[in-house]
């Protein structure tokens, strides 16, 4: 009886490890973007296809900005002088434009997935 319980526990531990592993790996790819004078710097980032990556966006302006992308299905308000994390992917190869909703004339960028 005790043997059976141990085996179940071991199995559960194995499943937990296996399910957590991809997450531990996923945090490795980080891309930094700055918002300065209502521009994205860089305004072009290349990421690998089929991988989850983290965008860290630093808003160096005093005004808030909203990072938005219809193609990436992402939107996030980034207050003035703050940073924001946005996870994207896995994505298929292609171009995924993004923009700053509060300053659309200047704040434009694109994620290139290769």
């Amino acid at each position: 009886m005790k043997d059976k319980t141990n085996r179940i526990l071991l199995g559960a531990l194995f499943l937990l490890t296996v399910s957590v592993l991809p997450y531990a790996h996923a945090e490795r790819l980080v891309y930094k973007i700055e918002i300065k004078d209502h521009f994205f710097i860089p305004d072009r980032i290349e990421i690998p296809a089929g991988t989850k990556v983290k965008l860290v966006i630093y808003n160096r302006d005093a005004t808030s900005e909203e990072f938005e992308s219809y193609e990436l299905n992402r939107e996030k308000v980034i207050m003035g002088g703050r940073k924001a994390n946005i996870f994207i992917g896995p994505l298929k190869p292609g171009e995924y434009p993004f923009f700053g909703e509060f300053n659309q004339k200047t704040a434009q960028g694109v994620v290139i997935v290769k």
Binding site: E27, K52, K54, N73, E75, N85, F87, P90
Partner: peptide, 14 residues
């Protein structure tokens, strides 16, 4: 769900 994926708390998919 879209926000959870944005925060990396739920896995995104194709």
């Amino acid at each position: 769900i879209s926000y959870l994926m944005q925060a990396g708390l739920v896995e995104d998919s194709y």
